[in-house]
Write a protein that binds this DNA or RNA. Structure first.
Lengths: 147, 147
DNA sequence: ACTAAAAACCACTAAAAACCACTTTTCTCC
DNA sequence: GGAGAAAAGTGGTTTTTAGTGGTTTTTAGT
């Protein structure tokens, strides 16, 4: 399970050094073989261990693709999905298209989200955190929650 | 049960010495293994004994995550959640991202809140205390309360 | 004055960032 | 189409910074 967040930096070639602890966790769960793709709701990337991705991929592929929303999800998630392997220094090279999608520059934030990680440009992350509360109805499960 | 508040200081490396009494309480309840995460409504941190966190984490993970409000809570609470252990001197190192979120500098306030503690920058705590009453409707349970 | 806790300080280690050299691919221009 | 130049990718080393563990000094409480 991934939780917690880390500051990470991307070098001038677009390589990202995975923090040592996460590197270890990934080594255990998938031998360092991950899949990175686009998040459909926010301009950030999703990082999955190989098998987690395999399960998700099936679900996505099975979506009814005459529906526009489903088609959008398929195009983005499948279309950006890139399998990557950590190099000897624990780094991955992010493809240019993914860097563009998430507007990644030098300073990034890697955020644990249970079965996956999210990768954000620091600037976008900060503005998301500062954003106002989302509109819309609040599910009972949320109102009842007590931190 | 945690109540009462303490002034605490963070050293130049971002380490926080837990006051002796709380340290003892934590040793009893969780062997010094705690989880620190972000509060979603205020810029402060939440400090949970390990098992308290485990219960909360399940509730959070179970929220309906196609709902924007629920997703925000998940992202912040899970995304910042970091398990920490007190060192031989009763200190914990706060990750940079948590320090940033709660705008922690040298002087902090640690506030007991029953099953957890809140950790505030002294400056933010003081301005929160001085703030005007919040707007909005008051739940019955609050109106019925008699101090 | 004594004790305990907190704060400051110091030395060491590990990880991250920056840097550099080299290879491969892609593009451009002849 | 091929040569050369530029860009992109790869692998590794060095330097710097952050993390760790511990000790000493100061402060505060009894």
């Amino acid at each position: 399970m991934f939780t917690g967040s880390n500051n990470v930096t991307m070098d001038t070639k677009g390589r990202l050094a995975i923090p040592a602890k996460i590197r270890d966790a990934l080594a255990d769960s998938c031998g360092g073989r991950i899949v990175i793709t686009a998040h459909t709701e926010d301009r950030c990337l999703l990082v999955y261990p190989e098998q987690e991705w395999a399960e998700l991929q099936e679900k996505i592929a099975a979506l009814p693709n005459m529906n526009a929303k489903a088609r959008r999800i398929q195009r983005l998630v499948l279309g950006y999905a890139t399998p990557l392997e950590l190099d000897s220094n624990g780094r991955v090279l992010l493809p240019q298209t993914l860097r563009d999608y998430a507007q990644l520059e030098k300073k990034l934030i890697l955020v644990g989200q249970n079965n996956k990680l999210e990768l954000w440009s620091e600037a976008l992350w900060n503005s998301w955190v500062d954003e106002d509360e989302p509109e819309g109805d609040i599910p009972d499960a949320v109102s009842a929650l007590s931190l």
